[in-house]
Design a protein around this nucleic acid. Structure first.
Lengths: 210, 210
DNA sequence: TCCGGAAATGAATCATGATTCATTGTTCGA
DNA sequence: TCGAACAATGAATCATGATTCATTTCCGGA
């Protein structure tokens, strides 16, 4: 990104801002929006309360920034995964793997994410659901494209790609759900579950194709 | 349940209690724990604030009661669904249908449910996760039993029932996820998704079996 | 009808925590 | 070195809403 031609002051400003956001993310993730006070964020980030307000006009604004940054991060990882070089099955596997990896690494954050998505969140509803909608549609489209091309190549059976996209999304979300709900889930390899799904939509066995 | 041999006073007490809980459920579901005040619950339920405290020692306690009642309701519906008369596929379908039906009818509440499960909730963590753990294990066991008996009867392929149970749970949860995240999801018939899953684990086509 | 105690009431108390702003510290060009 | 402009500080303010409790209302028996 544009990082040159900024004065030292400006760079410092940005660095401080980022520091605050990181602290806030970690606290919000651990304890949820309502259970974190500005005092606490100030303390941990080693700024004064008043200073936080120099960067973010309200607690909600801070939260919103922090939150949206992560949404973008995840979305871009997923889209990227669907576009790696390789055949359709490779792409699907990468998609799932990346998703699971990200969720695993950001499990604390995922809680916030779910809370917001499910509508009892703290971010301005209009703004967020619009963003969310946009991402969601984009992703489902991308997955549909994947299935379509797989069907054309006779790798997949001829099933409505829309339904497949949602099944895939649903299955992977469900797994994540399971992982989070049930901490000792790790004994189970997500791949084995994915395999079941693949078996049902692939014309041939998956191993020979990958 | 035991409802006779109570004085009128006692019955009235119970009725009032239930009324408060219903109001609270509806408010909490719509706006989440943090965004509902005791004043508001009092107003809507047509009792005075002080009265609420005659029934529930704190706001958390009220919430907890309301919340747990619903958890029991869902759990008992699911267990019942797995034990209707019929073959294994019939049971699975009923299970999914009942689950989807309940989630659909209680969509507002589901938000609370998810929030709690994902750990940023307001109910005493220890107590709740113990209850949740118990229910979850019970359910997975029940589903495993189902798959085992299906495998024995050669209706299902020979796949680790534990993995199947989690896949099924994951898939149906994921669908619900999708339904809630994306309001216009209703265009898609959950059965079509279930069918994909069934195809991959059934030895024969499902239609002939049901 | 009258009385004692149970039940209900809601204004007042109190705790928490977001937000403000007068004060203090820092930077840097003259 | 000096001081104007900018940045940081955190104690004080203020709003919200949970909880309490002194008072009132209700009820059943004498």
């Amino acid at each position: 990104m544009a990082h040159k031609n900024l004065t030292r002051k400006q760079r410092e400003f940005l660095r401080h801002r980022k520091e605050i956001m990181q602290t806030a993310l970690s606290l919000f993730s651990q304890k949820g929006f309502a259970n974190v006070s500005m005092q606490e964020i100030a303390l941990k980030s080693e700024f004064a309360v008043g200073t936080l307000y120099k960067f973010f006009s309200t607690k909600e604004a801070l939260y919103s920034e922090v939150f949206k940054e992560k949404v973008f991060e995840l979305h871009s990882i997923l889209v990227k995964a669907l576009n790696i070089p390789g055949n359709e099955i490779k792409k699907m596997k990468t998609f799932i793997e990346k998703k699971i990896q990200w969720f695993t690494e950001n499990m604390d954050y995922v809680r916030l994410y779910v809370t917001e998505i499910f509508g009892v969140g703290y971010i301005d509803k209009e703004e967020f659901s619009q963003l969310q909608e946009k991402n969601h549609v984009e992703l489902v489209d991308e997955i549909c494209r994947l299935f379509n091309s797989g069907i054309k190549k006779k790798i997949f059976k001829q099933i409505d790609p829309q339904i497949l996209a949602i099944s895939l999304n649903g299955l992977s979300n469900g797994l994540l759900f399971e992982m989070i709900e049930n901490r000792d889930f790790k004994q189970i390899d997500p791949n084995s579950v994915l395999t079941i799904f693949l078996q049902s939509i692939c014309l041939k066995g998956t191993d020979e194709v990958v």
